[in-house]
Design a protein around this nucleic acid. Structure first.
Lengths: 349, 349
DNA sequence: CTTTAGCACTCTTCTCTCTTGAGTGCTAAA
DNA sequence: TTTAGCACTCAAGAGAGAAGAGTGCTAAAG
């Protein structure tokens, strides 16, 4: 059977009607929205075809039609009109972002909540870890006889620091020397290597100083470990409850606790496309089989990517969500996409 | 009318029965749990008295009784038996805490979720800000011709650092000099003062270096601002849905969005008691009038306090929650209560 | 004066049935 | 191929009846 233009148009009306009201759409309502005068009977014939082809479903014999996942997919791929953002929409995204631009880390952890607020759906943000992060530089700053600050600069240009106690009172004038030792032996190597080399040094450095090195190296390893693990932040899960498809408390809780407790299993985009839409059963994870996810990725620093995703019922306003989310992701790319340190090439010019 | 021991005992049975099952408790069930043989008719007489006195309520004429807020209050004040934690309970709290002890900031932000997990109720954590935090020390570390690291040590012993770009290429050998300038002019003073003094310096320092000072001072002011504002973290709000009193999606959403969007209004303890229980209408906030809150506070650093709270239906297992929460708070006090830097007195001994 | 047994009464909850109305599928004519 | 007409289906809502838990009251017993 052929998928005529008229069939497509009917499908589009059904999707948009159902997205707007959550009620199955009947032939009469469709007839009114179709250009030209077509009777509801004709529409019914077409609807029957669309059901047969798998683009629509009927909840029961005497209800209107609702889109099937396949129907949504066709809608998203071909029928959906580009939603152009209003000034209001872009403004509210911009203003929220400009306030918080301080630190990359913070933005990622807040992105989930921000996205959720703008989209009106639960959302999440993932910063993918990189296993190739190393320490670029150590710095030790003496504070008093019993404490010092360890500053660690990572190869992804993030800087972390922590106050540390000295177990034994030692002459802080030797701190620069220890810093030098750290910089010569423990930079640009992976975490496992750090532990190894530290062991080798245990003979060459006297006890109390070795403890200091140990403390700093532990801290560095912890940072590298954190950098290599991906971090996931969810936000606005309670927005789920406003959708009729989650009025059933058990369904709502299933998805909510999935988003909170099994964050790590939230979908990440396959391939390189900057925006991806997963509809209902297209999701691998059981908890999402009746929901849809829209994902957009953005650049962080040099070669890193982060992603933001929106979760909702399959009856999601894909056009609006996709437009807003991609704008949001582009904004983040614009803010953090450029390397934070100028590269060698740029410096030379 | 007198509140006899027997009446109290009946009240206790009603509270504990209702807390366990969420069903109104009938006279027959009570009679079976009472020591000695007392008929259900006698119990009914007592129940009628307890209702008259305001300790119990009946949802409708032919249902059992449920405790009123006043009844819960009496239970909490007098009747509740101290719940002693099992080894399992303490172990799981300890093990979760020991893993994350790295940084105070992180613990506060994760405490909400951790508490929620252990209690089985939604929870929150607040770190109260202090307005008297100042910068104790600045440190500038050159990275390359166009960037440096600003390290700021605050008077509450926290250390923060950030990578900064230089607008103009300047000789980084003068960085220590700038650091010295910052340390002599901008430490131990409040944020407003920093802005003021910076203005005064604008003449004395040449343009590009002034920009650098500006950048660092802005960062410091932002940190002080953050330190003075209180931060609130909620966790496990989706746990609400498992309680029958929140099966009504609208009620659930009201409380959930209150906990997420109006975090700042979550109750803080009055007075000095380390543990506080607010039952139903005792809560000031409308959104909490039908819920209860258990709050415990703990020490951070020298003279600071943080707090953790649990939110749930008035039908809450107060004995268990109180015991676990106070243990949790005590553990945090133990970990962070001691000043992170030894005080002068300790050093001199 | 307190406790108890007995019994009618109340009120929720569950189930079953009936009604209503939206929407369909099919047929036959245009 | 389109349309009008009509019988049919099914969910949702309203009522009615039955079941069951628990009460309140009364009168007798301790």
């Amino acid at each position: 059977m052929e998928l005529t233009d008229r069939k497509k148009q009917i499908l589009k009306i059904v999707v948009e009607g159902y997205v707007a009201t959550a009620d199955p759409v009947g032939s009469k309502a469709i007839a009114e929205k179709m250009p030209g005068k077509i009777s509801s009977a004709t529409i019914r014939n077409e609807l029957a075809d669309l059901v047969e082809m798998g683009y629509l479903e009927q909840p029961h014999t005497s209800a209107g039609r609702i889109p099937s996942p396949k129907g949504y997919r066709l809608y998203v791929n071909e029928l959906m009109e580009q939603h152009t953002l209003t000034a209001e929409e872009t403004d509210s995204i911009n203003s929220a972002l400009t306030g918080k631009l301080a630190q990359v880390d913070q933005v990622v952890s807040q992105a989930g909540q921000m996205v959720s607020r703008f989209m009106g759906y639960p959302a999440y943000a993932i910063a993918e870890g990189r296993s190739d992060v190393t320490v670029r530089r150590f710095e030790l700053i003496g504070v008093d006889e019993q404490s010092f600050i360890a500053v660690v600069m990572l190869s992804d240009s993030r800087v972390k620091s922590q106050l540390m106690q000295l177990q034994l009172s030692v002459d802080s004038r030797r701190l620069p020397e220890m810093g030098h030792l750290l910089n010569t032996h423990f930079t640009t190597i992976p975490a496992q290597e750090i532990s190894l080399r530290l062991m080798n040094l245990s003979d060459q450095v006297e006890g109390s100083w070795f403890l200091l090195l140990h403390q700093v190296c532990d801290y560095a390893c912890e940072l590298l470990r954190q950098a290599s693990g991906q971090s996931v932040f969810t936000g606005g899960t309670s927005q789920l409850l406003k959708f009729p498809e989650y009025r059933d408390v058990d369904k709502a809780q299933e998805l909510m606790s999935f988003m909170v407790d099994s964050k790590e299993n939230l979908p990440v985009p396959m391939g390189d496309s900057p925006m991806q839409i997963l509809i209902g059963p297209e999701n691998v994870n059981d908890a999402l089989k009746e929901s849809s996810v829209v994902i957009a990725s953005y650049d962080i620093g040099d070669h890193m990517r982060g992603l933001v995703g929106v979760v909702g019922p399959t009856r999601m306003d894909y056009a609006t969500v996709a437009a807003r989310l991609s704008y949001f992701a582009e904004s983040l790319s614009r803010m953090f996409g450029k390397p934070q340190l100028p590269t060698k090439e740029e410096t030379q010019q």
